[in-house]
C-alpha cells in the first residue's frame, strides 16, 4: 500500500454516531441539489441541469464513503503535541505543539447536538493548520478541552 502511515498507530477515533450526522447532512444537501436540478430540467435549462446532476453524483459517492471517511478521522495526544489525521483519498496529518494553542472552540450543529456530539476546534496563530475534530461526545469534548488548556498552560510559548 502506498498510503501514508505514521510509525505510531494508536489513534483515538471519533464517535461512530458522526456517520449519522454526516449522512443526514449529506442527504439534505443531495435533496436540495436534486430539487434544483429537476426544476432546471423541467425548465429546459439543460446545461445547468447537467451541472447539478454531476454535483448530485459526487454527493452520492460522498455519501457512500461517509462511513470510511468518519473512521479515518483520528487524533492522538502525544507528550508535547496533538496529532490529528483525516481523509482517505486526500490524507492529511497535522502535528500542533500544545504550547501553540491560542484558544479552543467547541461547536455543536443542530443534528450533532441531537446525538450529543460536539466539534472541537484547536486554534493557533496560523490560519492554515485547520485542526477541527468533529464527532466527539460532549463529555469527551469538554474533558479534552480542559486537558488541552491545562497542557497548553504548562508548555506555553510565545508566537
Amino acid at each position: 500500500m502506498n498510503r501514508l502511515e505514521l510509525p505510531e498507530n494508536d489513534w483515538r477515533r471519533v464517535s461512530p454516531k458522526l456517520v449519522v450526522v454526516e449522512l443526514l447532512g449529506g442527504m439534505i444537501f443531495l435533496l436540495v441539489v436534486l430539487a434544483a436540478g429537476i426544476a432546471l430540467y423541467l425548465l429546459h435549462v439543460w446545461w445547468a441541469a447537467t451541472a447539478f446532476g454531476v454535483v448530485a453524483i459526487i454527493a452520492i459517492v460522498n455519501l457512500a464513503l461517509t462511513r470510511r471517511r468518519v473512521r479515518a478521522i483520528g487524533y492522538r495526544l502525544r507528550e508535547d503535541d496533538l496529532l490529528f489525521r483525516r481523509g482517505i483519498m486526500w490524507q492529511r496529518f497535522v502535528a500542533v505543539p500544545y504550547g501553540r494553542m491560542q484558544l479552543v472552540d467547541i461547536n455543536r450543529g443542530p443534528i450533532a447536538r441531537g446525538l450529543g456530539l460536539s466539534e472541537l476546534k484547536f486554534v493557533t496563530a496560523a490560519a492554515a493548520a485547520g485542526v477541527t475534530i468533529p464527532g466527539l461526545p460532549e463529555a469527551e469534548a469538554e474533558e479534552l478541552r480542559d486537558h488541552l488548556v491545562s497542557v497548553a498552560e504548562s508548555r506555553r510559548a510565545g508566537l
Binding site: 502506498n2 498510503r3 483519498m89 486526500w90 492529511r92 502535528a95 493557533t124 485542526v131
Partner: peptide, 19 residues
C-alpha cells in the same frame, strides 16, 4: 524553528500513485 506553529503532511490520489 521557534516560530513554527504546526506542520502537516498531505497526500492526494495522484501523489499516492507515485508514492
Amino acid at each position: 524553528q521557534p516560530r513554527l506553529q504546526s506542520v502537516a503532511v498531505k497526500q492526494g490520489p495522484l501523489l499516492r500513485l507515485m508514492r
